[in-house]
């Protein structure tokens, strides 16, 4: 349920950004790495929209697949390959704090832990469309 905390950040940022201008649509990207529960996240956003009288605002959620790259040998792979093998503790830890993957995931080619995340980390606001734009 920590999706709530992230949803709060999204709503508060939109609110601060909009000031007096009318926002019509917001695109929020959700990185696959964090394994956000989309239903809870959507529910939290809806509740928070109501609380902040932003009922008409449409928030579009887009999931971005997570891609990892080894900084030593250059191998690139998709996080979904790791996902199958992660035990519950690790999966939950990454869910709370995505960077924690560095403690558990190694390069499938050379075994290095020095890995870069190219795509699909965290939750961020990709686009804000104002009314009449």
């Amino acid at each position: 349920m920590h999706e709530w905390a992230l949803a709060e950040g999204v709503i508060k940022t939109i609110k601060e950004y909009s000031k007096d201008k009318k926002i019509e649509k917001v695109v929020v990207k959700i990185g696959e790495l964090q394994q956000i529960d989309i239903d809870i996240f959507k529910f939290a956003l809806d509740e928070l929209k109501k609380e902040n009288s932003m009922n008409k605002l449409s928030i579009i959620l887009e999931i971005e697949p997570a891609v990892l790259k080894c900084r030593v040998c250059g191998k690139t792979w998709s996080f979904s390959e790791n996902l199958k093998e992660l035990d519950d503790f690790i999966a939950e830890s990454i869910h709370f704090v995505p960077e924690v993957f560095h403690a558990f995931i190694k390069c499938p080619n050379c075994g290095s832990p020095d890995i870069d995340i190219l795509k699909g980390r965290g939750v961020w606001i990709e686009k804000i469309k104002f009314k009449g734009e």
Binding site: V97, P98, E99, H102
Partner: peptide, 29 residues
């Protein structure tokens, strides 16, 4: 961070440290 990594090393580079900091502070009540 110990709750999530236990005794494993956590090799992080610049921007990721920032990300970790922000994430923990944003979600901790």
């Amino acid at each position: 961070i110990y709750y999530f990594t236990r005794d494993n090393p956590l090799p992080l580079r610049g921007w990721e440290v920032t990300n970790l900091f922000r994430e923990l502070l944003a979600i901790t009540r």
